[in-house]
Design a protein around this nucleic acid. Structure first.
Length: 258
DNA sequence: GCAATTGTTGGGAG
DNA sequence: GCTCCCAACAATTG
């Protein structure tokens, strides 16, 4: 789930339910999810403080509280849940008790995590180097970013250090919309391809951010990802499925030929 | 038992 | 140095 558009959805969720609210306590139900602090450390740092407006960087969500920042990454299965009641879920790993209800960091597989940072330097240490956010990359930026790049376009799009926020599903979606095969070498893309790629990137991100998730119905490749017999939502051709850049990739052989 | 899964990291190979 | 592939992490489902 959590790629740029999902995390943008979490950010809105956080803003709506948690920002501006006082943290009365933190319950860590699985300490393994805390990566650079302890339940006690996290509790001491944020209890009694108020959550401020959250910020998203790539697939990371930053939630300032007092003099600290709670840094969250959702891995493959994480998300946020809010409930006014004690409506616990097995995979709720951290529960922030607010004056308005409970905000929960939930994750089935523990591939993400929750960190505590004190300043900008510590945040950058946690997230590692990140390229510009994918939804802010201009057409000119795209040329600059890909100029020195070799290898396949899909692995370039997913490289967080080059462009932040795009994962496996978004990259497939963008390449499908741009009608570019995921295995295409960056060096083989001409100016027209880059025009298409940028337009697709803007469109896919704009629309999926609006939904707070990559839509799984309608004119979206993503609607076919879990189908028994995946077909192209535009032309109806049977989709190809193969590992590209180390990840399961879907594309339309008629519209995105190699 | 096996394979698959929206993410990231590190090691080794070329 | 760059890029790719694989395994690992973890938990669950088919």
């Amino acid at each position: 789930m959590p790629e740029l558009s999902d995390v943008e959805g979490f950010k809105r969720y956080f803003t709506r339910y948690a920002a501006g609210h006082r943290i009365e306590g933190v319950e860590v139900r699985d300490e393994e999810i805390l990566r650079n602090t302890s339940a006690q450390g996290l509790g001491r740092a944020v209890s009694g403080e108020q959550f401020d407006e959250p910020q998203r960087r790539g697939k990371w969500l930053l939630a300032p509280a007092g003099n600290s920042v709670v840094v969250m990454h959702f891995g493959m299965t994480g998300g946020l849940d809010w409930s006014g009641e004690a409506d616990r879920h097995e995979h709720d790993r951290v529960v922030f008790r607010l004056d308005s209800g409970e905000l929960r960091y939930r994750a089935q597989r523990k591939l993400g995590g929750v960190w505590l940072a004190g300043d900008e330097r510590e945040i950058e240490e946690i997230t590692g180097p990140l390229g510009p956010d994918a939804d802010e990359v201009t057409r000119e930026d795209l040329t600059t970013l890909l100029k020195q790049r070799r290898g396949g376009i899909k692995s370039a799009l997913m490289d967080q250090e080059l462009i932040a926020g795009i994962g496996n599903e978004l990259s497939d979606e963008i390449l499908w919309r741009a009608r570019i095969n995921p295995g295409t070498q960056v060096s083989d893309l001409d100016e027209g391809d880059l025009d298409d790629l940028h337009e697709a990137m803007e469109g896919v991100l704009r629309d999926s951010i609006k939904h707070g998730v990559i839509p799984s119905e309608g004119e979206w490749l993503n609607s076919q990802r879990r189908a028994d017999d995946p077909t192209c939502p535009r032309c109806g051709a049977k989709l190809e499925k193969e590992t590209v850049a180390g990840r399961s990739s879907f594309w339309c052989p008629k519209e995105q030929p190699r």
